Amino acid sequence: MSWFGFGFNAFGQICVQEKSVQEETSDAVGEVKVSVPVELRSHVDHSCCLKTCQIRASWSRRACLHESRCVWLAGFSASSISNDTRGCRDAIISESHLTLAFPDRIESWDVQRKDKTPLWSMEIIPQSESSGVNLPLVPGGYIASKPPIFRSLAPHLQAKSLALGGDHVILLTAPGAVYSWGLGSHGQLGHGGLVSEEEPRTVEALWGVPMSSVAAGGWHSVCISEGGDLYVWGWNESGQLGLPSRGLQKAPQQKKAQPTELSDVSTPEEEPHDGDKHEEVFISIQAFPALLDVNPSSDFQRASCGSRHTAAVTTSGCLFTWGWGEYGQLGHQTFNSLDEPRRVEFFKAKDLHVVDVVCGPWNTFTAAVKKGVLDLKNT
Rank of each mutant, 00 (worst) to 15 (best):
S307W: 12
L243A: 08
E280P: 04
L241F: 05
I285R: 09
C64D: 13
T321N: 06
V34F: 02
C70H: 15
L206M: 06
P259S: 07
I224F: 03
T334H: 11
L171G: 05
E23P: 00
G5T: 09
N336F: 11
K348Y: 02
H278R: 14
P103V: 14
L162M: 12
D299W: 05
S245C: 06
A74K: 14
K277L: 11
G190L: 03
W72C: 09
F6D: 02
F347N: 04
R343D: 03
P118S: 07
P147L: 13
D167S: 14
I149Y: 03
I55H: 05
D356R: 10
D90E: 14
H43Y: 09
S245W: 04
G360W: 11
T334G: 07
Y179R: 00
A177M: 10
S121C: 06
Y231Q: 05
V313R: 05
R62P: 00
E340D: 07
T85H: 09
N83T: 14
G372I: 01
M211P: 04
S108I: 06
M1L: 11
S185H: 12
P296S: 12
S42Y: 02
A311E: 02
L262K: 14
M1W: 02
P259W: 09
E18F: 00
V71E: 09
H186M: 13
G140P: 03
K350H: 08
A251Y: 11
N9I: 03
S212E: 14
L164C: 13
S68R: 01
K250I: 15
R308V: 03
D229V: 01
V344C: 15
Q286N: 08
F282E: 07
V195L: 12
D299H: 14
G331V: 07
P361Q: 14
P259V: 04
E279S: 12
S196K: 02
I125L: 11
S307D: 11
L262R: 14
V357Q: 07
R56M: 07
Y142L: 03
Q286E: 14
G227K: 13
L172D: 00
G331E: 11
V209P: 00
E123V: 03
L100M: 07
L65E: 07
W235D: 12
E24Q: 10
H186W: 08
Y179N: 01
S77H: 15
D375Q: 15
C48K: 12
D110R: 13
W235M: 11
A10N: 08
I81T: 08
D293C: 08
V195E: 15
E95F: 04
S58H: 06
D115V: 00
P136D: 09
Y179V: 00
V281M: 07
